[in-house]
Amino acid sequence: MNPGSVPPATSRLSPLPPEPYDRGATIDILLDSAKDLKAREKELKAKEAELNKREQELKRKEDAIAQAGIVIEEKNWPPFFPIIHHDIANEIPIHLQRTQYVAFTTFLASLHVFLR
């Protein structure tokens, strides 16, 4: 035998005995009964009706807003850097606007200094 070679692996564990398997055994699989299927179908139809109602209500509101001439601004712009968009006049209560303005301009100034 070559001293550099690895000896063949031998197992000291005995193999597990085979599991008993009865080919004649039956397995009960519970299937939904027709009553359960009818109840599920009724539930799904109710959810569908609710979603259709909500969709119509949303469409009605959007149409009313469009007819009134109100422009809805996208809130998530730009998606790559949303902190830049900040509408102090419309989003911040009047009594906090000055504080917010100072804080925001200080932030932008410090951001400009650090990014230079």
Rank of each mutant, 00 (worst) to 15 (best):
M1K: 03
M1F: 10
P3Q: 06
V6G: 04
P7D: 00
P8E: 08
A9E: 04
A9F: 14
T10W: 01
L13E: 09
S14W: 04
S14P: 00
P17H: 09
P17D: 12
P18G: 01
P18K: 02
E19L: 14
E19C: 07
P20D: 12
P20A: 15
D22V: 06
R23M: 12
G24M: 10
I27E: 05
L31E: 15
D32G: 02
D32A: 08
S33Y: 00
K35E: 14
K35R: 12
A39E: 10
K42V: 08
E43R: 15
E43V: 05
A46C: 07
K47S: 07
E48G: 08
A49P: 00
K53T: 06
K53N: 13
R54T: 01
E55D: 11
E57P: 03
K61Y: 05
E62F: 05
D63S: 10
A64D: 10
A66F: 04
A68K: 13
G69E: 01
G69D: 00
V71A: 05
E73T: 03
E73H: 08
F80D: 14
F80L: 13
F80H: 11
I84T: 08
H86G: 04
D87G: 03
I88G: 01
A89E: 15
A89Y: 03
N90F: 02
I92R: 00
H95L: 12
T99W: 09
T99D: 08
T99H: 11
Q100S: 14
A103K: 15
T106G: 03
L108N: 03
S110W: 08
H112N: 11
L115S: 14
L115D: 03
